[in-house]
């Protein structure tokens, strides 16, 4: 049998986990911002989207779910025209799983409508990642041939995985406007 597995986004201080239906990187903490709070191209330095937590959650597991990974098509920065050095960044740990446990979830913050706080910001960054030696990775490095290890826990009951934490980094030569469509993928083993 196959479990029912969905992708969820976490928002708010709670957090509230919502099955993804209208995800968009933006400059507010919302799973469905519509066209409001678009990412803003900076006039100098970098701007960021608010970071996002995405995970898979399941019901109807047979015996176990394990080996949870995540990847991109490898061309996000160029497709979204994020500029020279712009990228979709992903939170990394120095060792072990790179996914953020639900207990370590942290609400995204920043200057609403302008920029999110950098995941690695020493003061306002994400507590689960900011003190790591590793800097956030370029999501384009994680493809089907070399996916990101999100969670190696073996789950024997209904539940949810650790989260992939990502945010968009924009630089001055990024291009404002509507963005081409991109596909992200979770993999998992189930028996």
């Amino acid at each position: 049998m196959a479990a029912t597995v969905n992708v969820e986004e976490g928002n708010g201080s709670g957090p509230t986990w919502t099955v993804i239906t209208s995800g968009r990187y933006c400059t507010t903490d919302s799973y469905n911002p519509g066209s409001n709070y678009p990412c803003v191209v900076p006039t100098s330095g970098n701007n960021y989207s608010y970071w996002k937590h995405h995970r898979i959650a399941w019901t109807g597991v047979g015996t176990q779910i394990s080996n949870i990974r995540w990847y991109t098509p490898g061309n996000v920065a160029s497709t979204w025209q994020l500029g020279t050095g712009g990228q979709l960044m992903v939170g990394l740990r120095d060792s072990g799983d790179h996914g953020c446990p639900t207990a370590n979830y942290q609400q995204a913050t920043g200057t609403q409508g302008t920029t999110g706080h950098y995941i690695k910001d020493a003061t306002n960054g994400h507590d689960y990642y900011k003190s790591q030696a590793a800097t956030p990775g370029d999501a384009d490095n994680y493809t089907s041939a070399s996916p990101l290890t999100v969670d190696t826990t073996v789950y024997n009951a209904n539940g949810a995985s650790k989260s992939v934490v990502t945010q968009v980094k924009l630089v001055t030569d990024a291009t404002q406007g509507d963005k081409s469509n991109i596909t992200f993928t979770f993999l998992y083993d189930e028996i």
Binding site: N6, F186, Y188
Partner: peptide
Amino acid sequence: RVFFRGKIEYSDF
């Protein structure tokens, strides 16, 4: 050992 490999893609459109 045998197992299913699940793949769940999410894409904006």
